[in-house]
Computed example of a mutant assay.
Amino acid sequence: MQIGVYSLGDRTPDPVTGRAPTDHERLLNTARIAEHAEAAGFDVFAVGEHHTSSYAVSAPAVLLGYLAARTSRILLSTATALITTNDPVRVAEDYATVQHLCGGRLDLMLGRGIFGPVYAWFGRDPDDSRRLATENYRLLRRLWDEDTVDWSGDFRTPLRGFTAVPRPLAGHPPFVWHASVSSEETAELAAAHGDGFFANHIMWPWQHTARLVRTFRERYAAHGHGTAEQAVVGLGGHVFVRPSSQDAVREFRPYFDNAPLYGRGPSLEEHMNTTPMTVGSPQQVIDAVLGYREYVGDYSRQLFLIDHAGLPVDTVLEQLDILGAEVLPVLRRELAGGSRPA
C-alpha cells in the first residue's frame, strides 16, 4: 500500500486572516509541502492542474520537474493532468522528461476536468469531453509505446513518422491512473487499458465510491487484464488531524465553511457523517481509512488532501508530522498487501 498526499494548489484566502497567498508563495509552499511529506515518510506526492486565478498550479509538469531536483525518494505524480485539453504529444514529452529527471519516480494521473470554461480556453468543446479523453489517451499510449507513430484522429492534425522525445526511461512509461469523481466512462477507459483507477472519494457518500470501484473492477476483468481483485485501485480522502477530535473540529471549521469544494453547503458535521472526510484524532483517521476496505476491497494507494481551503502552510506541515508519526505506521501495518502499480 502506497500512502501519500496531494495538493490542488488552490489560493483560497485564509478565513482567519483574510489573506490569500500569492502565486509565488503558493508554488514555493507547495514545494515545501512535498519536501516535508518525503521527510515525514509518505510514499507519494501529487499535484493537480487548474487554469483559473483561484489556483496557482497550471503547469504540473514544470512543478514536478522542480520537485524532482528537491526530493530523492518520494514518488511524484499529477492529481490530475487534463487529458482532454492538453495535446497528447505535449503530455508524452513533458512527462517523459520529468520521468528522466526524477530517475523514474513518476506516475501520471489523468482526468477530464470539471470546469467547463477551460475547454474553450484551449480551443475545445466540453461536449466532446468523453471523445477527447478516449482519443487523446489512445494517442498518448502509442506515443510512449511505439518509436515511430503514424496517426490520424478527429481532434488534432495527423502524425506521420513521428517520434516523441525523450523516449520513456528504460523503455517503461510512467504508470497511469485515471481519476474520477463520478464518471463511469473514466472507469471504463482505465479498465480497457489495464491502468489504475483513482476514485477521488472526498465529496460523495461511500456507496457512490463503492459502486464506481465495483464497475471498474468488473470491467477490468471483462477486458481480460486479470481478476477483479487484481485491478489497481487508489482512493482520495480529506483529513485534518489534531491530538483531540474537539481541537480538530474547532480549528478546521472556518476553513471548511469557506472551502471552494465544500463551503455554503452541508455543515461540517453533516459532511463528516455522509462522506469519507475525517476531521479528528489520529485514531479516528486510522479507523476511517481502515474502514474503506469494507466497501472497495484491498487497494493500492491512499492519498490525503491536506492543504485545501486556505490552511496556513505551517499548519499543513504540522498535519504531515502528526500523520507521519502516528498514522502511517499503523496504516502500513494494517494495510499491507493489495495489488500494486506495475
Rank of each mutant, 00 (worst) to 15 (best):
G4T: 10
Y6G: 03
D14I: 11
R19S: 11
H24C: 03
N29E: 15
R32C: 01
I33Q: 14
A34K: 06
H36Y: 13
A39F: 05
A40R: 10
A40E: 12
F42L: 09
H50I: 10
H51I: 12
Y55D: 12
L63K: 06
L67H: 09
L76W: 03
T78G: 07
T84R: 06
N86Q: 13
D94A: 14
Y95D: 12
C102H: 03
P117Q: 03
V118S: 09
A120F: 01
D125W: 10
A133I: 09
A133E: 06
R141I: 11
R142Q: 15
T148Q: 13
V149N: 11
D150G: 04
W151H: 12
P158K: 04
L159N: 09
R160K: 11
F162Q: 05
T163C: 08
T163Q: 14
T163V: 06
A164D: 09
A164E: 11
P168Y: 08
P174Y: 01
F175C: 01
V176I: 14
V176A: 11
S182Y: 13
S183A: 15
T186W: 11
T186L: 08
A187G: 15
A187S: 13
A187E: 09
A187R: 00
L189Q: 13
L189F: 09
A191F: 13
H193W: 13
D195Q: 06
H201V: 09
I202T: 15
P205G: 01
Q207P: 02
A210D: 08
L212T: 07
V213L: 05
R217Q: 13
Y220R: 06
G226K: 04
T227D: 13
Q230Y: 05
A231P: 08
V232E: 04
V233P: 08
L235A: 02
G237R: 00
H238N: 08
F240R: 01
V241M: 06
V241S: 02
S245Q: 10
V249D: 00
F252H: 10
D257N: 10
N258E: 11
A259E: 08
Y262E: 03
G265A: 04
E270C: 04
H271Y: 14
P276N: 05
V279S: 03
Q283R: 14
V285L: 03
V289N: 01
G291H: 04
V296A: 00
R301I: 15
F304T: 00
A309E: 02
G310V: 11
V313I: 13
L320G: 06
L331N: 05
R333V: 03
R333W: 02
E334W: 04
S339F: 01
S339H: 13
S339K: 00
A342V: 11
